[in-house]
Design a protein around this nucleic acid. Sequence first.
DNA 1: AAGATATCCTAGCGATGCTAGATCTTCAAT
DNA 2: ATTGAAGATCTAGCATCGCTAGGATATCTT
Lengths: 194, 194
Amino acid sequence: MGISERKIREKSEREGRIIATARRIAEEEGWEAVTIRRLAQDIEYSQPVVYSHFASRDAIVGAVALEGFGDMADALRAAAPESLSPREALEAVVTAFLDFAFGRPAIYEAMFVLPSGLRFARSDTPPQLRNTFGALMAAIAPFCRDAELATETFWAALHGLVELERHGRIRPAFRASRLSLVVEAICHTPDGGT
Amino acid sequence: MGISERKIREKSEREGRIIATARRIAEEEGWEAVTIRRLAQDIEYSQPVVYSHFASRDAIVGAVALEGFGDMADALRAAAPESLSPREALEAVVTAFLDFAFGRPAIYEAMFVLPSGLRFARSDTPPQLRNTFGALMAAIAPFCRDAELATETFWAALHGLVELERHGRIRPAFRASRLSLVVEAICHTPDGGT
DNA sequence: AAGATATCCTAGCGATGCTAGATCTTCAAT
DNA sequence: ATTGAAGATCTAGCATCGCTAGGATATCTT
């Protein structure tokens, strides 16, 4: 049955091309330029073929977001080799988080802002999401008792920094200073949140 | 010239009705239900009349957001009467922030997430935005040296908490614990961000 | 009363996400 | 080899969106 296997393989490749194309257009022109018609044209199939892979446009955003979480998990882990001290590792990880967010804003948007159908903290949460959260938690855990709670909280701080700066709410020039402040806060806060 | 004044008054009233209608629909059914056609129908005028008041849909979102900033500034100031200690005032203000965000999610969305054309930290920044930032800063200033930087940073933390919870990224049940952690962080962090 | 000026509406443009139904290809069973 | 079922793909279209051109109507000025 090599023929049906080839078909499955071709279908899988086509799905990958849809995701890659969506990602590229989003990065180059923003998500509002990612339309089903445009995707169909770029992969040289008709629109219903796109819908045979993804139930909706949001599902395509979700697929790009999932890839993004894989990339971010890798980036965060790579930023904190074991040779670093806890403080150095923490600084490296939060810096890597912001670098990812501002270096690939469209992917970040898919991951955290746009409707994508992805869910955290559930039994069906994909490993990419768990790994991203885990990489953050590994950096923060040395500084507190309830690591999960602290990770949620300081993850929120990082996300807030990204979003407010993206929307022109805070001064871009002071990004590094704010990041230092967050790191200070993590290092000096007694874990009293419970 | 009472006639032309009446016309100006009527036009202003109509503008207020557009904003109020947009706000109501957004709160009841979400922003995607706020369409120009729907607004026109509700105020009993045709669509071009709506465009004679607002240049675009985004401008309507911006008008609702501006009202929202006024409301939020009031809410934050009301939460922190002078009789409170700095620590109590801080807790009251951050709690009021989250209460506003989760109590009126559509208004919050207009203020912080949707494109609205509003700009912070500029010469033309409206007073409603300045007052909101000021109310936050008043609560945080007692705990740090560079109040503006600290306010930006902890404002980001609050916004991140709201956004991650809204998107199902963190556990709703632990909202209060995370908030306690943020307050702890503000109170115990030496102001080393500069 | 008549011309100028606002004011407002009808109708429509070019998009969007998404889908029904027809067409064409492929494969299994006779 | 033929035929009928099953699957893959496309054409064409629906409903809706933000937004606008151009004509009709009402109002004001002279």
